[in-house]
Write a protein that binds this DNA or RNA. Structure first.
Lengths: 184, 184
DNA sequence: CATTAATTTCTGTTTTGACAGAAACAAAAG
DNA sequence: CTTTTGTTTCTGTCAAAACAGAAATTAATG
């Protein structure tokens, strides 16, 4: 398939960004491609369009599937597997956040809990214990919050985001709290 | 400096996690070390403690400084540069979010805006234009929201996070919106 | 059951980034 | 101004990951 200049720019940039946070370029490009063309494609067509080896496409798709970012479909009269991705940006966001939390936050929480429970942890300096405790508490609050937020529909989510810092009006003692210009 | 087992575990894990989101192991380890010991250290001591080359420490610290995660200090009677990091987890979080947004979101917003403004963009298929538009809108809302949130004090922030999805009560039309069990 | 078509796994090559050690540089003290 | 001490830049080595192409496997059709 021939890509327009605009589609190319988008896909290349997406691949570039992908590698900036741990997902390899081809994986990110395939996802961008499926997002852009908005129709099911089979492995062969993806490989041709992006100029990468089919094996590469195969592995990348497996990875995308494991993250639930692309799903397998079929088109009538073609027995090849086809793949597509959701066009709902909010749903994609939810999936990505969920995955990153699992891979980046959860293991750290586990380690911090183990440390706190270790027999010799009590002997550590107070600052160290205190800092680890703060870190753990922080990650736990963050986890609960993100789990709850991600359970909401995109519509509610966008409303909350649009509220912005306005939510501070709803928490007691939150007045006069703006820190504009204190640290930059 | 001799590290306790607990401190070692923490630092090694932090380094491990670091490499999971694009920051190299040594950089993450140095940050973890400074966080754990909670006092200024000079380059030499850092290198000895972590068993890495001094040049490596030098470069890593430069990177951490550019992200405002460590700052330079001096201790009396010692002309060497010493380095320390904030013990305030919330402040660290704010700095990290800010940096990641700059490096991961801002460039994408710029590209999407350019695409939308390109002379031949109007000729693109409707779905494509629509999807890019959605993506841009999403990233813009997210940016505004995070900018505003990050301006709040840690105390307010923790209150809001603790509210969790409870914030939905404050947005109109948010009732009956829970999606539990719809997609997993 | 054989043949064809598609996908996945395997193996070797290439590229990229981390890192150590040396060399160059800068700053302070006597 | 020279010596000492600390910091940064540079260069080469090493390790890990991405990737292509071939081989093996699986599934479908006649």
């Amino acid at each position: 398939m021939e890509l327009s200049n605009n589609a190319q720019t988008f896909i290349l940039h997406w691949g570039e960004m992908g590698s900036r946070w741990g997902v390899n370029r081809t994986v990110a490009q395939i996802h961008a491609l499926l997002f852009a063309v908005a129709r099911p494609m089979h492995a062969e067509e993806i490989a041709e369009t992006l100029n990468v080896a089919r094996s590469n496409v195969s592995n990348s798709i497996k990875e995308l599937q494991s993250w639930q970012l692309v799903k397998l479909t079929h088109v009538l009269g073609d027995r090849r597997d086809h793949f597509e991705t959701s066009g709902d940006v909010w749903e994609l966001f939810r999936i990505i956040v969920k995955g990153r939390k699992q891979r980046e936050i959860d293991p750290t929480i586990a380690v911090l809990r183990e440390l706190r429970a270790a027999p010799d942890f009590g002997k550590e300096p107070e600052v160290f214990k205190h800092r680890l405790g703060d870190t753990l508490e922080f990650l736990e609050v963050l986890t609960i919050w993100s789990d709850e937020m991600m359970r909401l529909s995109p519509e509610t989510l966008v409303k909350i985001l649009r509220l912005g810092a306005g939510v501070q009006k709803f928490v007691r003692g939150g007045k006069g709290d703006d820190k504009s210009g204190d640290s930059s």
